[in-house]
Amino acid sequence: MDNKTTEIKKKEGFNGQKAIVLPRSILIKTCISNPLLSGIYLTDIGFYPKAKFHYRERDQGLDQYILIYCIDGKGEAKIGDTSYSLIAGNFIVIPADQSHSYASDKNNPWTIYWAHFKGHLVKPLITLMAKRQKGYKGFVQFNESRIKLFEDIYLNLERGYSTDNLCYVNLSFSHFLSSFIFDEKFNYSSRKQMINPIDVAIEFMQKNLHSTFTLEEVAKAVNLSPSHFSALFKEQTGFAPIKYFNHIKIQKACQYLQFTDLRIKEIAATLGIDDQYYFSRMFSKIMGVSPQDYKSRRETLRETKFL
């Protein structure tokens, strides 16, 4: 896969290490040819605790992407001419076909979870990650659920390479990758408190769907200036705050239309909109159909037992 790979490592390996290299025949037979798996699939995966003397240098790179997640100790990585220092909480993704090297610190060796992966969806996913992280290196808060997800992937791979097993493992690995790209959303239901002001703002909106707010009022709720709040909100969600608020109002309206007998005027009033015609225009713009048509279609589906 590469013309030169330099490896320096203690012959006995690292105490507690584990690794799985998927057979190339399995990758060709099951992963590459399966449309469910060909987007993102693992080729190698492992865990190296206190990996003293761990070192790799690949002048021509690999035809795979590499994820290294450091949870203890420290080390360094180099991609092309750019060097990165890695400490606990840091992760880095090394792109395919890029010259690179990485090494554990000799005095404080790293403990890492790592994976090699491929697929036609990987490049756009890592491009998104690099855009959000402003580079290939990032930082995530330690989350036990992320480690448990990795362990689940690894333990299932140990059970063999059936199609069902590989589907579960690789779909789970996509989730694992997304936990680095969207750390603020990963395992959201178990978070005890929210410190991201945008999360707080969205929670504020969800609890006050019956009200109407100005930009200034929502910004005040999270103690930010309107201009800073608006810029930050759009950066993280892709939408202006009030537009986002309208989207989740309409999301709630869809639930009312589907699961209750409330009239359109009553739904609008419940969502803090006095003018039912304004509500209908907003609903139609967002959903592509009028509230009445939406309700009729859902009723038809229920009657024909498609739902």
Rank of each mutant, 00 (worst) to 15 (best):
Q133M: 07
L157W: 02
F245V: 02
G39K: 07
F142D: 04
I273R: 02
E266T: 08
D63T: 11
A221S: 14
Y161C: 04
P291Y: 01
I286K: 06
F229L: 03
I8H: 08
K148M: 05
K123H: 07
A103E: 08
N187T: 05
M282E: 11
K249R: 12
S280E: 10
F233E: 00
C70A: 15
D293P: 01
I250D: 02
S104G: 09
F306L: 15
T82L: 09
I26K: 13
S99N: 14
I112V: 11
Y168H: 04
V222Y: 03
G272K: 07
N107Y: 04
L307P: 06
Q206Y: 15
R146M: 08
N15P: 03
F204R: 10
A130K: 05
S33A: 13
K207S: 14
T212L: 08
I28H: 15
L232N: 07
K234R: 15
Y168N: 04
K123V: 10
F204L: 08
F142T: 10
Y48T: 00
R302E: 14
A103Y: 04
R297D: 11
V200T: 09
L157I: 01
M287P: 02
G13C: 01
F245R: 00
P124D: 05
H210V: 13
S284Y: 11
L67R: 00
H116Q: 04
T30R: 13
F259N: 13
I264N: 10
F213D: 13
E266K: 05
A96E: 12
F306Q: 14
T304G: 03
G46T: 01
S211C: 15
N156T: 07
T304Q: 07
C31L: 12
L224Y: 05
K4I: 14
L307Q: 14
A96W: 06
N223A: 06
N34L: 02
T260P: 06
Y278S: 11
D81M: 07
I28V: 15
M129Y: 08
I40P: 01
A253K: 00
C167A: 06
I242M: 04
